[in-house]
C-alpha cells in the first residue's frame, strides 16, 4: 500500500503556494484595511460613535475579506487538475480538505486577526476589548474558512467570479457573526465574555468535524 502525504505536508504545500502568489494572498487583507477606512469617511470621525460600532464593523469586514478569498481554496486545484489527483488519492479525501481549510486560515484568517488591533485602534475600540476581539476573530475566521470550503466545493466547477458562492455561504455565516460580535460587545461593556466565545468554540469544533466531509462529498459531485 502506497503512503500518502501527511496532513502537515498538505498544509505546507498550500501555504507555500499562497506564498508564491503573494499578491493574491494579501489582497483580502488590504481590502479589510481599506474598507475599515471607509467607515469613518462614510459615517462620522467621532471616536464615541466609532467605538460603539467598531466590533460589528470589524466582524463584517473580516467576513467579507474571507468571502473574497474562499473561492480560491479549490479553484486553482480544479483548473490545473490537482483536484482530480486529490480525488483519486488512496485515502479519505476529507483529510486533505481539512488541511486546505487550515492552510486557508493560516494565510487569511490568522493575518486578519493579527491585523485587527491596528484597525481597532483607528476605530477607537477600548483597549480592554482587544483580547476578546483577537480570540473571537481567530476562532471565528477558522469557522468562516471551514464553512466557506463547503460553499467553494459546491461551486468549484461553475467558473470563477460568480456571485453564487457568497449567496450560499452568507446565511450560514450569520450565527458565528452574532456570537463573534457579542463577544466583543460583552468585553466593551465589561461583562464576562467567555460565554459567547465558548459557543463559538463549540461551533468551530462541529464545523471542523463536519465541513471537510461535506466538502469532500461535494467535490466528488461537482468536479465529476
Amino acid at each position: 500500500m502506497a503512503r500518502t502525504p501527511s496532513f502537515l505536508a498538505y498544509v505546507r504545500r498550500d501555504v507555500l503556494l499562497a506564498y508564491r502568489r503573494l499578491g493574491d494572498t494579501v489582497a483580502p487583507l488590504i481590502f479589510f484595511t481599506m474598507v475599515c477606512t471607509l467607515v469613518p469617511l462614510g459615517l462620522s470621525p467621532d471616536p464615541q460613535r466609532l467605538s460603539e460600532i467598531a466590533p460589528g464593523i470589524m466582524w463584517i469586514m473580516a467576513l467579507l475579506a474571507t468571502l473574497l478569498s474562499i473561492e480560491r481554496i479549490f479553484a486553482f486545484d480544479f483548473e490545473d487538475g490537482s483536484l482530480e489527483q486529490l480525488l483519486i488519492a488512496p485515502q479519505l479525501i476529507a483529510l486533505p480538505v481539512l488541511a486546505k481549510i487550515v492552510a486557508h486560515w493560516l494565510v487569511t484568517g490568522l493575518p486578519l486577526t493579527l491585523l485587527s488591533p491596528l484597525l481597532a485602534m483607528t476605530l477607537s475600540l477600548p483597549t480592554s476589548a482587544y483580547p476578546a476581539m483577537l480570540l473571537s476573530l481567530a476562532i471565528g475566521s477558522a469557522y468562516l474558512s471551514a464553512v466557506g470550503a463547503v460553499g467553494a466545493s459546491l461551486t468549484v466547477s461553475l467558473g470563477r467570479g460568480g456571485l453564487l458562492l457568497p449567496l450560499l455561504v452568507v446565511p450560514l455565516y450569520m450565527p458565528i457573526m452574532i456570537f463573534g460580535t457579542a463577544t466583543v460587545f460583552y468585553a466593551v461593556d465589561g461583562l464576562h465574555w467567555s460565554g459567547p466565545l465558548a459557543a463559538m468554540g463549540a461551533m468551530l469544533c462541529a464545523a471542523l468535524a463536519l465541513c471537510p466531509l461535506a466538502a469532500a462529498a461535494a467535490l466528488r459531485v461537482t468536479s465529476a
Binding site: 459546491l154 446565511p171 450560514l172 452574532i178 461535494a218 461537482t222 465529476a224
Partner: peptide
C-alpha cells in the same frame, strides 16, 4: 444530475444550520 446532488448537499448543510440560526438569532 450534478445540480440535484450539489443542491441536496447544500440543503443538508442548511438543515444542520437551521437550529443554530434560530437559537443564535
Amino acid at each position: 444530475e450534478m445540480a440535484y446532488r450539489a443542491s441536496a448537499i447544500l440543503a443538508l448543510v442548511g438543515t444542520i444550520n437551521i437550529p443554530i440560526i434560530y437559537k443564535s438569532v
